[in-house]
Design a protein around this nucleic acid. Sequence first.
DNA 1: TCAGGGTCTGACCGATCGGTCAGGCATGCT
DNA 2: AGCATGCCTGACCGATCGGTCAGACCCTGA
Lengths: 190, 190
Amino acid sequence: MRRAEPETRGEILAAATRRFAATGYRGTSLQDIATEVGCSKATVLYHFANKEALLTELMAPAITELQALDDALTGLTGRAAQQTAADGFVDLAVRFRREIALIRGEFPELLRQPEFAHIQRISERLRDALAGNTDRPAAQVAALVLLAGISETCAEFVDMPDAELRPALLALARRALEPVPEHPTQDKET
Amino acid sequence: MRRAEPETRGEILAAATRRFAATGYRGTSLQDIATEVGCSKATVLYHFANKEALLTELMAPAITELQALDDALTGLTGRAAQQTAADGFVDLAVRFRREIALIRGEFPELLRQPEFAHIQRISERLRDALAGNTDRPAAQVAALVLLAGISETCAEFVDMPDAELRPALLALARRALEPVPEHPTQDKET
DNA sequence: TCAGGGTCTGACCGATCGGTCAGGCATGCT
DNA sequence: AGCATGCCTGACCGATCGGTCAGACCCTGA
């Protein structure tokens, strides 16, 4: 069972991906991962400082690109921001479906940790951009439905080809975000 | 600290609601709940058979009504099913926002338990109805985005008045579900 | 031949989890 | 007075968690 080449690290990453996607981050123990790899739990912790380090390494590419999208958003407002945010987020969600599935349902708790605090801020900015920088409830609601719904849908449809999933999401986002005729529901006080 | 009237059970339920909503079902220990109530963990387990019984009692009304919506859906197809599903689900999601928040992010794991297996089936039927009983990818994607997005949004906007949240969600759902001009992307196989 | 470093492991640790159990205490009925 | 019952508790249990550690094993280079 001893492995001459040090590819164990990679196998651990692959196994962790599978287990996290299947049973979630908290629902997966280091022993689960070790068993899937065929090594001991101590080996997993030899290659990675702790359980969280495994997750952050798995999520790193997605986080980097999310940050890039956030940067691309600075300065944009109104329809331009809306379009950029929608297109960019759909693209990210489709491409990083696997990563989304990894932390599915544990977003709220994971975001509470300081290491992921900036992601919290990014998703808030993304939501504002999608809402067209308005605080109209209807716009905020639509933005959040899209963000959450797209994430969940991508995690669910892991096997759908990009060429099918992406245009479906883009079309939906465009329909959902099309400027509703204002419909001035005058509410003076909140 | 002894309570003459047996209102402890109600206090436990209330505390469990708060804690589950704040840190999730798995993220909340029986000791957490006991501490918030001001009693011992054994007392919690005296009033409830186990941790899961607490959750099921909290979720019972929502589940009952979800079942009713599913019943109302039988026999309907096409646009009628779509409308009924959308209106019914938005209504349920808005009214049972708190219950959704309780199990936020733990839906996948909870659904795996046999006690909640029928909810799995209901949500699948709901998705099919929302998709207009089509298996066109675009329709399935839109249906899932709506279901997941609406749930998450309701859980997030716990404090928004019903009168604001409901129409916003309904308008969004109507826009998202409006019959897209077919746009025959001929895919012969699958 | 030997030293050293990278890889891996079993044994172990403290903490926390859900859950059990025998018994204490107050009350009310007989 | 005696007894049953409902409510509540501390002490305890086995399991599991993430993480530590001393040492075994193997390869390589001097």
